[in-house]
């Protein structure tokens, strides 16, 4: 457990000293979201309708943007080899790196989400559920993304490949995440969607360490 804390600590420190990366994802999130009114027109009722969907899709793309660097720097400078040969189980090391990734990517997106909600004239009654759903959903995006990032290490055009591998797997999180917010906005119970998101999070908490460790081991062979 202390090894996991060490890894989270190191990655957070690295992220803080290169904080431009984290800002980039948030900036991308807000900017891309702000493009939609230009594309479809500023009609408030329409924007209100699509707000949860747009926020989720844009958040998903912002996470995608940040995935490539999750393991790549460690792979290129030899840290990943050392990590694999440390007494800490690789599965735990991966969880540590994913946690750090979520803290530096998912959490800032959640903090920026109310801004987009305002820009899209979203009914503020749904904001609580939107944030709760993102709190459950963005870790899923980091977890699934970590598998894609690990699998593409050393690949030609790895950065282009990650979206191709990861986006289809993101669809359930997108559906439940938007579903929860839509339900809350329609005055229905968001509980079923939130429960499904939580279940998906638990499933990925099991799958990612296993698949990620297999992927990293084969990447270093």
């Amino acid at each position: 457990m202390s090894g996991l804390v060490l890894i989270v600590g190191r990655d957070l420190r690295l992220a803080l000293r290169q904080s431009a990366d984290a800002w980039l994802a948030v900036l991308f999130f807000v900017l891309t979201g702000a493009l939609f009114p230009f594309g479809i027109g500023p009609e408030p009722s329409l924007l209100k309708l699509i707000a949860p969907g747009v926020i989720w899709v844009v958040a998903l793309l912002a996470v995608l943007l940040s995935l490539e660097r999750l393991f790549l720097a460690d792979y290129e400078d030899g840290s990943l080899e050392q990590l694999l040969l440390s007494p800490l189980p690789l599965e735990l090391a991966i969880l540590g790196k994913v946690l750090a990734h979520w803290l530096t990517t998912g959490l800032p997106l959640i903090a920026a989400a109310p801004l987009l909600a305002v820009l899209f004239n979203m009914d503020m009654a749904g904001l609580g559920v939107l944030l709760l759903a993102m709190l459950l959903g963005t870790p899923i995006l980091s977890l699934i993304g970590a598998i894609g990032a690990a699998l593409t290490l050393g690949a030609r055009r790895g950065g282009v490949l990650i979206p191709l591998l990861v986006l289809p797997l993101y669809i359930p999180a997108l559906i439940f995440g938007v579903g929860a917010t839509d339900a809350a906005l329609a005055g229905l119970s968001a509980r079923p969607d939130l429960m499904l998101l939580a279940a998906l999070l638990l499933v990925m908490l099991v799958i990612t360490p296993l698949a990620g460790a297999a992927a990293l081991r084969q990447a270093l062979e």
């Binding site: 060490l6 190191r10 400078d77 030899g78 840290s79 440390s86 007494p87």
Partner: peptide, 24 residues
């Protein structure tokens, strides 16, 4: 190996301390 596993933004000491601490 051929690679030194040195992080550019960490000081020499921080680099070393991380790997040593990881080995417990």
């Amino acid at each position: 190996g051929h690679l030194d596993a040195v992080k550019p933004v960490l000081s020499a000491k921080e680099n070393l301390r991380f790997w040593a601490a990881l080995r417990g």
